[in-house]
Computed example of a mutant assay.
Amino acid sequence: MRITVIGASGQIGSRVVELLTAAGHEVVGASKRTGADVLTGEGLADAVAGAAVLVDVTNSPSFEDDPVMDFFSRSSANLVEAARDAGVGHYVALSIVGADDLPESGYMRAKVVQERTVAESGLPYTIVRATQFHEFAEMIVASLAVGGEIRAPKARIQPIAAAEVAATVADAAQGAPVNGIVNLGGPDKMSFAELARTVVARQGEQTPVVVDPSATYFGTPVDDDSLVTGTGAVLGDLRFTDWLASR
């Protein structure tokens, strides 16, 4: 089966290309580097020509509200148009668990627009929503540092390995469209404070971790349910502590 992966040079996309190639598919790895520009539409027709499946794992180069909305609005519209014109039979997109419940986040609002564009396109589709990656944990904890302390939101998080996200996206690409959302999370739900203490200990630091009900996740208020999966979700196997220890 011919499968086009858009965003193939990224952390998830490169893994998806490897997995699908190893499974025997004809894989086209496309990105801006190969001449496929999701913002202008240039090169997309060639990238998706003859593809049975399009996998969209693109990401915005900016997380600021206006640029990220512009990116996902334009990229999803251009990709849907190219997929429709090429007769693609399955559109697979990667998104974020809880995206539609966090409207105060400009990034999440943009992901919802992307999801809606795909869902309303008329194309058979699968949206894989994943929780935050293990690989982002140190960045998340660093963002909570204030005045020599880590001020953690009173909320839970459910980190998952990027490799397991890529595997689930690859599985979705090889399966039938669900015309809906697949939620994916790590095996353990933990508090932000637990995550922070684990990261700080691994770094050999003694930075105090304080639970602060006013603390936010990159400026967005979150609670125990905002960033974690509910019932019926697919769960990964690699625990964050085991992943961290293996680095």
Rank of each mutant, 00 (worst) to 15 (best):
L235K: 05
A130I: 01
P124H: 02
R84Y: 00
V53G: 10
A45C: 05
R84I: 02
G7D: 11
A145Y: 02
G43Y: 10
Y91M: 10
M69S: 08
T207P: 01
D224F: 07
I140P: 13
A110M: 09
S246I: 05
S121I: 11
D56P: 13
R239H: 14
G89H: 07
G89R: 15
S246A: 15
A173M: 11
G232R: 02
A30L: 13
A77N: 01
T131I: 10
G147A: 06
L244T: 04
V27A: 12
D212L: 01
D223R: 00
T40A: 12
D188L: 11
A161M: 12
L144E: 03
L227S: 03
V57D: 13
M1R: 08
M139V: 12
A245Y: 06
D225R: 12
D65G: 08
T58I: 09
D100P: 01
V182T: 14
Q203G: 12
G106S: 04
R129A: 13
Q11C: 02
A83M: 10
K111A: 09
V17E: 09
G43N: 11
V68P: 00
I96D: 02
A99V: 00
L235P: 12
A162W: 00
D223M: 07
D237L: 12
E120F: 00
L19E: 14
D46L: 05
I3Q: 07
I12H: 06
G185Q: 04
T220V: 09
D212M: 04
V199I: 14
G185S: 09
I150Q: 10
A77F: 02
G35S: 13
A142D: 15
V209A: 03
I3S: 07
T126E: 09
L184Y: 11
D237W: 04
I157W: 03
G50F: 11
G89L: 02
R2F: 04
N183M: 04
T131W: 13
G10H: 10
V5Y: 09
G41P: 04
